[in-house]
Design a protein around this nucleic acid. Structure first.
Length: 752
DNA sequence: TGCGCAGGTGTTTTT
DNA sequence: CACCTGCGCA
C-alpha cells in the first residue's frame, strides 16, 4: 500500500481509491474532507494521470490555495502547479477570457462586483424615472441575481407568468424591464457581473459544441468542493463538463449548507444521485476535530432539522470541557466577558491568541469585541467586512486602470471623470450619459467628441483635458509594465496628491492603502509565469483577478498570533481550539429575516451547527439582554436554539456579572411566562406615539414612584432604581408593554 | 460646481 | 449609530 493511504480510515481510503465514475462523498464536519480530496488528486497523479487534466473547483480562493499547497507537499515536485484548481468564478473567468469573442465580449472584459452592479442599476432607475425608495436597488439586484443563478434570461423573466405575478403583487412590475436594461448595459460596457461568469460559462458550453468538447477532453477528472453550496447554474455546468468521462467527484455536507440566499440548493445533492446509474456514495462520519462534548452537542442541534441526509458523526476523542453558556446584561458586557475570558484562559492554560475565534451572525456585531479586546491589549484581526479592494480610494484608483484597459466601461469612467475634481459635475455626467443612450454610442465615444454634442467653455476643455490625459496613458500601456503605468497614473491624475494632502488619520491610511495597491500590482507583474498554463501578467489579467479576491484570501499570516473575529459564514472550513459563539438572541440568531419560514429557520440552525463544529476543545455561547441596534437599546429574547442544547453538556451557571439570569435557572413554566411577557413588547412597543410635548427630562434625580413617558414603550411607573450613580438602571412598569430595565444614561425619558 | 448640513433610512450571510 | 441623499448656498 502506498504511504499516503496509510493515515486514512477505511471510508477515506475508499474515496481516494474510487477514481473512475461518479462519486459523492458526504463529509461531515471535521471528517478530513480536504485530506481526502487532496490525497485523491495526488493518487490520480501517482497513477499516471496527466496533471493538466484535473479540474478542482472550490468556493474560496483560500480553499483552492490550501489544496494546491497540500498536493504540492504530498507529491514533492512541481506537478501540482499544472492542476486546474480554483474557485468557480476564477476558473470560469479564465476560460471566458480566452473564449470571450464567441460570446461577443471583449477578451479583456471587466468584472463587476456587487457595488459596481448596484451602481449600474441605480443609473438605470434614474433613467427610467423610477422611485429608488420603492424599487430598492438591493432588492432588484437580488431578483436579477437569483434569476441568473437559475439560468433565466431577461426575456424568460419577462415571459414567466409566475414571476410576473410576483412582481405585480409586490407592485414592482418594472423589474423585468430593468433586468433587460441592466443586461444590455453590462454587455455594452464589456462587463460581466459575478453571476454572468456562471451564466456565460454555461452558454459557452451549451451553445458551442467545439468548446464543450474541448473542455470535456481537457478535464478528464472533475472535483467539486462544498457541493452543497452549488446553485442551478453551477449544477448544469458541472454536468456538462463531466458528461463525457463521468469522472465527477463531489464532496459536500448537507448539514453545512448555508448559502441558499445565493441560490445554493441541496436539491443538487439529491439530483446527483439520480443523474448517473452507478453513483458511488461514501459517507465520512468520523470527526477528527472536536471533543465528544462538542460533537454531541452539535449532533443534537442538527437533529432538530427535518431536512437532512441521515448520518452519525462520531469521535474517539476525550469528553472534554462542557460548553459554557453565558448571559450578560448588555452587548458591551458581552464584549468584556469574552476579552476577560481570553485573558483568563491565556494565563491558566497558556493558549496563544490565535487559539481563539469569536464568531457572530452579522458583521455589525464585531464592534463590542474590538473595543474590549483593544482595551485589554489583545491582538486581534477582523476577517471579512469591508475588503481591501472595496475601499473607496482603491476602487477609485482601480477605476482608472479599468478605463485604460476597457474604455467601454462606463461605470468606471463615471467614477473618475471628476475625481479629483476637475470641473465635470453631475449635470455634465448625466448629460453625457443621456447622449450616449440616444446616439447608441459609448460614454467614451461621446466625450472623445464632446465639441459635437453641445459642450462649451470650461466644461468642454475639462472634458477634453481628461480625454487627452487618458489617451496619453493608453499610449504608454504597451511600452511600460503595469506597475509603471499605475504609478504614473496616480501622479499625473492628481489622485496621489489629493490623498497626500489629507493629513487626517484616515487620510494617511488611505494613502498607505494606495501604496499597498501599487505594491500588489508590482508583485503581480513581477511574478514569473508558472510552468504550464500561462497566465498573462498584464494589467487586464490583474484587474480580473482582484475583483474575485476577498479579504479571506489575503495572506493568512498563519503564524501571526491574533484572536480572529469573523462571521460564521466566513468561518466555514476553519477550525480553532477555542470558540466564542456570541449574540445568541432571537432576531439576531436566528435572524429576524429568517424566523418565519421553516426552510430559512433550518438554514439558521445549520449555521449554528457550523459555528459549534469549528471548535476543537472549548466553546462559549453568549447572549446579551440589552443591545444597541440602530443606535437605540433593544431587548431580545435568548435564542430558541439555546433550548436545543442538551443540558447535560452545558454549564450554564457561569455568568459574567452577579445579576444575570440564565434560562436554565428557570422552570419551564417560568420560561413560558417570560416569553409571554416579552412577546407583546415586539408589537406594542412601536405603537406608542410619543406625546407632542415630549421633551427628554434630566433623569439624574429620578425617584421610585415617578411617572415617566418613553418614546416607544409609553407611560410607566418607576418600580426600583439600582446600579452605581454613573450608570443607574431603572425597572419601569410600562403596563401592557411589561416591565423593562432602562439604562438612564441612554434612554430618553420624560418625567410626567 | 462644490461644499456643508439636515434628514432619512437601514443590517443577514458573500463569490 | 453611521452612512447616504438631497438640498441650499457661495
Amino acid at each position: 500500500m502506498q504511504d499516503y493511504l496509510v493515515p486514512l480510515n477505511e471510508q477515506q481510503r475508499e474515496a481516494v481509491l474510487h477514481t473512475e465514475g461518479p462519486l459523492m462523498i458526504v463529509a461531515g464536519a471535521g471528517s478530513g474532507k480536504t485530506k481526502v480530496l487532496t490525497t485523491r488528486i495526488g493518487h490520480l497523479i501517482n497513477l499516471g494521470v496527466d496533471s493538466f487534466r484535473i479540474l478542482a473547483l472550490t468556493f474560496t480562493n483560500k480553499a483552492a490555495k490550501e489544496m494546491k499547497e497540500r498536493i504540492e507537499h504530498m507529491l514533492g515536485n512541481n506537478e501540482a502547479r499544472n492542476l486546474y484548481i480554483g474557485t468557480f468564478h476564477s476558473v470560469f473567468s479564465r476560460i471566458l477570457r480566452s473564449d470571450a469573442e464567441k460570446l461577443g465580449y471583449p477578451s479583456n472584459f471587466t468584472i463587476y462586483d456587487t457595488d459596481d452592479a448596484k451602481s449600474v442599476l441605480k443609473s438605470i432607475l434614474k433613467e427610467k424615472n423610477l422611485d429608488e425608495k420603492h424599487y430598492k436597488v438591493a432588492y432588484i439586484y437580488g431578483r436579477i441575481s437569483s434569476a441568473k443563478n437559475n439560468l433565466m434570461t431577461w426575456r424568460e423573466y419577462q415571459n414567466d407568468k409566475g414571476i410576473q405575478q410576483e412582481d405585480a403583487r409586490s407592485n414592482r412590475p418594472m423589474i423585468g424591464e430593468i433586468f433587460e436594461a441592466y443586461s444590455k448595459r453590462c454587455f455594452k460596457n464589456g462587463a460581466m457581473d459575478f453571476d454572468d461568469l456562471l451564466v456565460n460559462m454555461y452558454i459557452l458550453l451549451s451553445n458551442f459544441p467545439e468548446s464543450l468538447a474541448k473542455y470535456q477532453h481537457k478535464f478528464r477528472y472533475v472535483m467539486i468542493d462544498e457541493y452543497q453550496d452549488t446553485n442551478l447554474a453551477q449544477y448544469h455546468i458541472i454536468k456538462l463538463l463531466g458528461a463525457l468521462n463521468e469522472n465527477i467527484c463531489v464532496v459536500g455536507d448537507d448539514a453545512q449548507s448555508i448559502y441558499s440566499f445565493r441560490g445554493a440548493t441541496m436539491e443538487n445533492i439529491f439530483q446527483f444521485q439520480k443523474d448517473y446509474d452507478d453513483v458511488r456514495v461514501i459517507k465520512l462520519e468520523q470527526n477528527y476535530r472536536s471533543s465528544k462534548t462538542i460533537l454531541n452537542a452539535a449532533n443534537q442541534i442538527i437533529a432538530n432539522n427535518a431536512n437532512q441526509i441521515p448520518k452519525e458523526l462520531w469521535t474517539d476523542k476525550e469528553l472534554g470541557d462542557k460548553i459554557k453558556l453565558v448571559c450578560t446584561f448588555t452587548d458591551n458586557d458581552e464584549g468584556k466577558f469574552v476579552a476577560d475570558t481570553i485573558i483568563e484562559n491565556k494565563l491558566r492554560y497558556h493558549h496563544p491568541n490565535k487559539d481563539f475565534a469569536i464568531l457572530y451572525r452579522t458583521n455589525a456585531q464585531s464592534r463590542a469585541f474590538e473595543e474590549s479586546l483593544r482595551r485589554l491589549n489583545i491582538a486581534y484581526k477582523i476577517y471579512g467586512g469591508l475588503s481591501f479592494y472595496h475601499r473607496k480610494e482603491i476602487k477609485d484608483y482601480v477605476a482608472y486602470l479599468r478605463v485604460l484597459v476597457n474604455t467601454q466601461d462606463e461605470e468606471a469612467i463615471k467614477r473618475i471623470i471628476n475625481y479629483p475634481a476637475r470641473g465635470i459635475g453631475n449635470t455634465s455626467i448625466n448629460k453625457i450619459s443621456l447622449i450616449a443612450q440616444e446616439q447608441n454610442k459609448s460614454f467614451w465615444e461621446i466625450i472623445c467628441q464632446a465639441n459635437l454634442y453641445g459642450f462649451k467653455g470650461t466644461t468642454l476643455s475639462a472634458i477634453e483635458n481628461f480625454v487627452v490625459m487618458m489617451r496619453n496613458f493608453q499610449g504608454i500601456i504597451d511600452k511600460k509594465n503595469a506597475y509603471e503605468v499605475a504609478s504614473e497614473l496616480g501622479k499625473y491624475s492628481g489622485m496621489v496628491q489629493e490623498l497626500h494632502s489629507d493629513k487626517t488619520v484616515e487620510g494617511l491610511a488611505r494613502y498607505e492603502n494606495i501604496q499597498e495597491l501599487l505594491n500588489s500590482i508590482k508583485e503581480f507583474t513581477e511574478t514569473p509565469d508558472e510552468d504550464g498554463e500561462v497566465i498573462e501578467r498584464t494589467l487586464g489579467s490583474y484587474l480580473q483577478q482582484i475583483t474575485l479576491l476577498t479579504d479571506a484570501d489575503n495572506e493568512d499570516e498563519e503564524n501571526s498570533d491574533v484572536v480572529k473575529l469573523m462571521t460564521i459564514h466566513a468561518s466555514k472550513g476553519l477550525e480553532f481550539p477555542c470558540v466564542f459563539v456570541v449574540g445568541m438572541e432571537e432576531n439576531i440568531f436566528p435572524s429576524s429575516m429568517s424566523m418565519y419560514d421553516r426552510e430559512d429557520l433550518e438554514e439558521e440552525r445549520r449555521l449554528f451547527y457550523v459555528a459549534v463544529t469549528r471548535a476543537k476543545e472549548k466553546v462559549w455561547i453568549s447572549y446579551a439582554n440589552n443591545r444597541y441596534r440602530f443606535g437605540s437599546l433593544v431587548q431580545n429574547d435568548p435564542s430558541r436554539f439555546l433550548d436545543e442544547l442538551p443540558t447535560d453538556l452545558v454549564d450554564a451557571n457561569l455568568t459574567s456579572k452577579p445579576k444575570q439570569r440564565t434560562i436554565f435557572n428557570k422552570s419551564s413554566e417560568q420560561r413560558n411566562e417570560i416569553q409571554q411577557k416579552k412577546m407583546p413588547s415586539k408589537t406594542i412597543a412601536v405603537e406608542h406615539k410619543a406625546s407632542t410635548n415630549f421633551v427628554e427630562s434630566d433623569t439624574s434625580n429620578l425617584e421610585v414612584g415617578n411617572k415617566v413617558e418613553h418614546q416607544r414603550f409609553g407611560f410607566g411607573n418607576v418600580l426600583t432604581l439600582e446600579g452605581p450613580i454613573a450608570n443607574k438602571i431603572a425597572n419601569i412598569d410600562f403596563g401592557p408593554n411589561g416591565v423593562k430595565k432602562i439604562m438612564l444614561n441612554y434612554a430618553k425619558l420624560r418625567i410626567v
